[in-house]
Amino acid sequence: MKIQELWVEQAVSGDLSAFSKIYECIYKEMYRYAYFMLGDVHDAEDVVSDAVMDIYTGLKHLRNAAAFKQWSFKILANKCRRMRKQYIRKNVSIDDEKTELHLSQRETDLEQQYDIERALGKLKQEEREVIVLSVIGGYSSDEVGRILNMKPSTARSKLKRSLTKIKKKLEIR
């Protein structure tokens, strides 16, 4: 579902139903991104909630409707970063036992799920961000670059490196 620029303009002037339409286009991606970054359902919910509030109240600062998606993901990415920093303070390892939540309720290959999550957990924050934005957000390296404040070539190389790392982790078994 593509965000219509008209909706953004309407939302800027306070039209909540227009905002709702926009949100419908991105909420799943947002949640998945948060979940992959944090590994915890409740934290991901909180972070998405916070981000959406900020996005809604901050809409008046957005002058280029076309940049809405990148802009909101940037807000979300930063919220996730803050949350992760607090994990470090509380000495919670991101690949702790308790963060190994089931990725889905379905009877699919649980082992593979487990592996992937552990593999992701071993990535450095930025690498993880790049991978999650690319895979889940479906962003191009250009777009990833803008969200994470890096050159597109950097985003590409980080993506490549992260995929290689994950591959290594999965192949070790």
């Binding site: 909540l16 905002f19 709702s20 949100y23 419908e24 909420y27 799943k28 947002m30 949640y31 998945r32 979940y35 992959f36 359902v41 991901a44 919910e45 998405v48 909630s49 959406v52 509030m53 809604y56 990725l103 889905s104 309720q105 379905r106 699919t108 593979q112 799920q113 992937i116 991978i131 690319s134 895979v135 889940i136 995929l163 994950i166």
Partner: peptide, 26 residues
């Protein structure tokens, strides 16, 4: 990439984050 994507699709989205609930919060 595909594998990751597949996993992402399998993630269940909690109620609180769904559009109707979120709009209510706002």
């Amino acid at each position: 990439f595909d594998m990751l994507n597949q996993e992402a699709q399998n993630i269940e989205i909690p109620e609180s984050v769904r559009p109707d609930n979120m709009m209510q919060k706002i």
